[in-house]
Nucleic acid binder design. Structure first.
Lengths: 110, 110
DNA sequence: TTTATTAATTGCAATATTACGATGAATACA
DNA sequence: TGTATTCATCGTAATATTGCAATTAATAAA
């Protein structure tokens, strides 16, 4: 129990849900917004920018990276995170196809 | 601990995350897709369509309804659920503004 | 009225997520 | 070689979510 039964859904449904899930936390939304704004960032900046501990920020960065939304370059002693624009577009477009869905026929009720 | 510190984020960040969170479960994605397809549905149909118990489906419907994505009409003994198209467009557009974000300046790294 | 059907609600168990402190690894600088 | 800095990882605690069985509420049909 408590486990999502991923196997009963289509690949598309799981993919869409997975993308939305990663975006479904305000810290990660805030991180993305900040990265879009400055377009270059180290983790330390984020800790100051957002009010969470370094460990927690690092966890959120990991989830964003897993989805492919970030890329990081080593830059001296610290790591520089940026949006992976190409991948962001892919992921964003995938979700937007779902969001732009329209009913296929006229509603019979409501 | 384990609690999201909503108070440190902007209203927009919380709103965006909240929308994404609701969409962040394959069962809810599946429910929406099905409702879009048939454009009229009772809960019983969904239980057969998706492989979850009636109680669980009901919970997911509740969350979709909370976000305003669904509206339900009483139809005899059963309830007819439909997408609330107007609200769907609002919510969808709100999220898409975020998804269509572009970097504000040229990247200095990566 | 009684019975059947349908969906919401409640209560529970299990898993997932969130957040942080402590620790570890890697690099920069003295 | 130390020492400081920066970020990742681990372990822990608390809350949230998921899913179901059982129950409840409401209506339809007999």
């Amino acid at each position: 129990m408590g486990t999502t039964k991923s196997e009963i859904y289509t690949l598309e449904q799981n993919k869409l849900a997975n993308i939305a899930k990663v975006l479904g936390h305000p810290a990660r939304v805030a991180i993305l917004q900040h990265l879009f704004k400055v377009n270059a960032c180290v983790c330390g900046d984020l800790v100051n920018e957002i009010g969470l501990s370094q460990a927690t920020i690092s966890q959120h960065l990991k989830e964003l990276k897993n989805l492919g939304l970030l890329k990081g370059n080593i830059e001296g002693t610290s790591i520089c995170y940026c949006i992976d624009i190409k991948n962001w577009k892919n992921v964003s477009t995938y979700l937007q196809v779902f969001l732009n869905q329209k009913p296929t026929n006229l509603g019979e009720c409501c």
